[in-house]
């Protein structure tokens, strides 16, 4: 239970960075940390005590492999999720460059007052 609690604390740190900070780059860092916490949570859900990796090597029989291997389905879900998070950050960085061109600053307080 301690491990799930620690992962949820990391998730809430990311949400705080997204909600309460006023710099756009800090918001993007918060989105990144939320992505880390969610991916870690999926893989922790599929862990088996004293388990081996789900890749067959030519010295292990198939019955022993099925008994001891870690759950392979969450790993397949996380593998695509990591690359999608990278494309999201690329898009957000391009958006923040456009905002800096129009208003001259990264700070949301000054942008809200300018209304340009």
């Amino acid at each position: 239970m301690i491990i799930y609690l620690a992962i949820s604390i990391m998730f809430f740190i990311g949400i705080y960075g997204m909600m309460a900070k006023k710099n756009i780059i800090k918001m993007i860092i918060g989105v990144n940390i939320i992505g880390y916490a969610v991916n870690l949570f999926f893989i922790v859900l599929g862990y088996k005590n004293n388990g081996i990796q789900p890749i067959l090597v030519p010295g292990v029989s198939i019955e022993e492999f099925v008994e001891k291997a870690v759950n392979p389905i969450p790993q397949a879900l996380v593998l695509t999720s990591i690359v999608i998070d990278l494309s999201t950050i690329c898009f957000l960085a391009a958006l923040s460059i456009r905002i800096y061109e129009k208003y001259g600053t990264f700070d949301l307080e000054k942008i809200r007052r300018l209304k340009g």
């Binding site: 990278l86 494309s87 690329c90 960085a93 391009a94 460059i97």
Partner: peptide, 8 residues
Amino acid sequence: LFLGIILL
């Protein structure tokens, strides 16, 4: 990914 980084 190469296109994304070189455009930035």
